[in-house]
Every structure is written in C-alpha cells, then in structure tokens.
Simulated scan of single mutants.
Amino acid sequence: MPKGKGSSMSEGEAAAGAYERWDLVEGMESEKREQRKARKGAVPSLLTLSPERAITLLYVLLALTFVLFMALTIVTLQRVSAMWEALEQARMRSENSHTTARHNLSEAQDTLDEQLSVELKVMRGRLQNVSQEVERVWWKVAECQRECGKELADRLRVLEERDVLEPVLQQLAEARQEQSRVAALLDKALQETHNLSEIFCTRCPSGWQQFDRTCYFFSSTTKPWLAAKEFCTNFSAHLAIVDSQQENKFLANHVMENQKFWLGLTDRYREGDWQWTDGRSLSLPFWNNGEPNNVGSHGEDCATIYSNGRWNDVPCFQAEPWICERSC
C-alpha cells in the first residue's frame, strides 16, 4: 500500500471518531436540558390545578397535619400520665414509710416507758431497803458512840480518882487520846450516814407522792394560781415544774379524770413568754392542740395539766387544784 494513501485514511478515521464523541456529548447535554425543563414545569403544573382540586388537596394536608398533631398530643399525654402515676406512687410509698416509722417510734417509746417504769419500781424497792439498812447502821453507830463514850468516861473517872504514879497518868493521857480519836471516827461515820440518807432519800412528808428523789403534793381543794403558789411556798415547796417527759407522765397519772391542776408556769409578766416560777423559760412544752390561745377579755396567763398529760392556759383567777413540788 502506498504511504500517502494510508495517511489519508488515518486522518479520516480520527475525524469520524471526533464527530461521534461530539454527538454523544451533545445528546447528553440535550437530555439534561429536558430534565431541567421537566422539573421546572412541575410547579407550574400545580398552579394550573382547578380551585376545587386545590382546596381538596389543602383539606387533605390539613387533615393529615391534624391527625399527626393529635397523635403527638396523645403520646405526650400518655407519657405525662405515666410520669404522674409514678410520682403519686412514690408519694404514697413515702407517706406509708413515714407513717410506719412514726408508729414504730411510738411503740418503741411506749415499750421503753414501761421498761423504765418497771426498772424504777425495782430501783425504788432497792433504795428503800438500802435506806432502811443505812438507818439501822446509823442507830447502831449512835448507840455505839453513847456506850463507848460512857465506858471511856467511866474509865477516865476511875483513873483520875486513883492516886497513881506516872505510868498511870500516861495511860490516862493515852485513854483520852483514844477517846478523842473514837469520837472523831464516830462523828465522821454519823456524817457519812447522814449524807447517805440524803442521797437515798425515799421518804416524803405524809400525803406527798415521791418521784425521782422529789416529793409532790396533789391538792384536794381549789385555789387561784397565786394562792396556790403561796400555799406551796409555806411548805418550802413551789408549784410543779416539769423537766422531762417521764415527770410529766407521772403528774398526769395522779390527775383525776375531767380535772386540771395548776403548774408553776405563767406568762402573766409578758404575754407569750412562758416561764416557770424559778425564772427558767419553757423549753419542753406539752400543750394541747391549739393551746395556748389566750382567749377571753381577761386573757389566759397560767398553765394547767390534764389527766392525759396535755397542758392548757386558763385565767389565773380561776380556782383549780394544784401540785406542789419539793426535794425530799
């Protein structure tokens, strides 16, 4: 094949390939333009809908929106209801636990009070036995002092009457020293016996009740608060002062049903400032519900105790029974 002819065919084939690629690119560009036109024409096609169809389509969209809103609302309400039920159950469990705790605490306190009451009775019996024994010892010591003192005095008198020499005088001096020493020991023993009697005090005046080394008098007549206070003072006592729950319970147990007794508690000097007769401020109250309320034109400035252990404020001029308190 000649050289010039082969070169001419190669150029023709290259040109034909270039035309084919150009046609392919042109076809792809044409398809893209058609697609863009189709998308742009979609919106105008909605605008070309009839008013009835557009309103219908709008109603459908609104209905779908409403259904979706209601579904979300129902789900939210269900969650809120579930959370509310859980909170209510937690509150009920908390109240039940608090009620159970208060009930258990009340039962434990009652049991402890009963145990303390039994133990106090046992201790009181033991203290009475100790007091009786101490009293017997005291009388024995006093009797010994009288007898020993009499015996030593007799010996000294006999020795003094004799006209003896120096050894006898020395014995006399030693006897006197022994007498002094025995007398001092007896005085010390008597003092210690007296101190023990005060420590183990188990005796109160006739008509008085004892509790925790203290004597209490529960009157059978009535007086105004100031007159009752003066009555206690005449017996080296004072109107009852409550220092513990056990003491308040003891006083309540001796108060007759449907009666109230004066306590040594008043706010007659300054309203609302409740103080005991010894000047101490009230720190452990046992007021009844709604008390003190200071009702009436004359006010209520003096405290009383009921048989249930609760207190009430009443006018000081009323005549009520009273409770005196003193050390035994």
Rank of each mutant, 00 (worst) to 15 (best):
N195P: 03
N195M: 10
L196G: 08
L196K: 12
S197V: 08
S197N: 11
S197G: 15
E198Y: 04
E198C: 09
E198D: 11
F200E: 06
F200V: 13
F200M: 07
F200D: 05
F200P: 06
C201N: 13
C201V: 09
C201K: 09
C201R: 11
T202S: 10
T202D: 08
R203W: 07
R203K: 15
C204R: 05
C204Q: 01
P205I: 09
P205L: 13
P205H: 10
S206T: 14
S206F: 12
G207T: 07
W208A: 05
W208Y: 10
Q209M: 09
Q209D: 14
Q209E: 15
Q210Y: 03
Q210H: 06
F211T: 02
F211K: 07
D212G: 02
R213Q: 10
T214E: 03
T214F: 01
T214D: 03
T214K: 05
T214L: 03
Y216L: 01
Y216D: 01
F217M: 02
F218K: 00
F218R: 00
F218Q: 02
S219Q: 03
S219P: 05
S219W: 01
S220V: 09
S220D: 14
S220W: 05
S220C: 08
T221F: 14
T221G: 14
T221S: 15
T222V: 11
T222N: 12
T222Y: 06
T222S: 15
K223N: 06
K223T: 03
P224D: 15
P224Q: 13
W225H: 08
L226F: 06
L226D: 13
L226T: 10
L226G: 04
L226S: 10
A227W: 05
A227P: 09
A227L: 07
A227R: 04
A228I: 01
A228D: 01
A228R: 02
K229H: 15
K229N: 14
K229V: 05
E230V: 10
E230S: 13
F231S: 03
C232S: 02
C232L: 00
N234D: 12
N234C: 08
N234F: 08
